[in-house]
Design a binder for these strands. Structure first.
Length: 115
DNA sequence: CGTGTGACACGTA
DNA sequence: TTACGTGCCACAC
């Protein structure tokens, strides 16, 4: 448990759940990703929006760029940083009309934790 | 206690 | 392919 994933402030009951979400996020291998819904489904509790909430609050301490939308679109406002990570990790990307990487190729990059 | 909002997902057009 | 409506759930007002 790294210090940086400690809640900034008055976190309450969400802390336990947040811990599980962050555990999963930390377990995502280099070059692969999970969607918010994937994590919620794997945990068997909460939902995509709850996972998104956890990531919004405490995601800074983990590989946040490996947790994205189910359609492979990138985190709004952090596309530049995310693309840089994907490029160095070799994450499978889909190209847009200009031949530039725009979103993650979920067919190849999606990862599921071992049961 | 109702209403609005959000780092979402999905069906439909 | 994108856009919109709806379901979902926690939280701020």
């Amino acid at each position: 448990m790294s210090p940086s994933r400690r809640p900034p402030g008055g976190a309450r009951q969400l802390t336990d759940y947040a811990g599980r979400v962050l555990d999963v996020a930390e377990a995502i291998p280099r070059g692969l990703v999970m969607s918010y819904g994937d994590i919620a489904e794997y945990l068997g509790e909460g939902g995509p929006r709850q996972v998104g909430r956890v990531m919004a609050l405490w995601g800074g301490g983990v590989a946040w760029w490996r947790v994205i939308h189910a359609d492979g679109s990138l985190l709004a406002g952090h596309e530049r940083a995310a693309l840089a990570r994907y490029r160095e990790e070799g994450t499978p990307m889909r190209l847009d009309g200009d031949g530039k990487p725009s979103r993650v190729d979920m067919r190849r990059a999606r990862w599921t934790p071992a049961p």
